[in-house]
Design a protein around this nucleic acid. Structure first.
Lengths: 77, 77
DNA sequence: TCTTGACTTGTCAAATATGGCAAGAATGGA
DNA sequence: TCCATTCTTGCCATATTTGACAAGTCAAGA
């Protein structure tokens, strides 16, 4: 893995989430509705846009709602 | 992926990191020495023990130092 | 144009990750 | 046992994520 800026990896992960979410035909509201603990579309949006450096547990909850492995969201290529 | 407690996924990810680090024959000090930006063995230890809910960027830097894909560290099975 | 749904962004408070240091525990070897 | 190395943990200050709400943007249609 080549050197990558923080902003770059956050952007890729955000794109992964957005892509998978759209593939499943879900809106952000649908997504948070499927997440067990409380989470907000605000946060989803910021993560999808790469504006926030999410914790692994938040990404895990998203992966559960999307029904994909956490590692799928964390692919950088 | 079955329901999993936050503490459980943090523990698994920590074990992944520790396992890979040991496979590479690295100490925590070696590891931080390979990481570009500053990071502390304190933090590595806390992550390996599952005591902290690391951000994805921190895990990414660790994956770079370990020379494995980020997704490898994020495997939960 | 107006409306609706979907998303983004600003701000706030609370919680917590991070970096840093120091002290303590654990481990293995001489 | 003593020592050195490695790792863990407590504490602190700072930065940032998170949840929450409100307001703004944007696109598609009627």
């Amino acid at each position: 893995m080549a050197r990558m800026e923080k902003s770059e990896i956050l952007k890729i992960i955000g794109q992964n989430i957005k892509r998978i979410r759209l593939e499943k035909g879900l809106t952000q509201v649908d997504l948070v509705g499927k997440i067990e603990a409380q989470i907000d579309t605000t946060n989803i949006s910021r993560i999808e846009k790469g504006r926030t450096n999410a914790t692994i547990h938040t990404l895990f909850r998203i992966s559960q709602a999307l029904e994909v492995p956490l590692s799928e969201i964390c692919k950088l290529n």
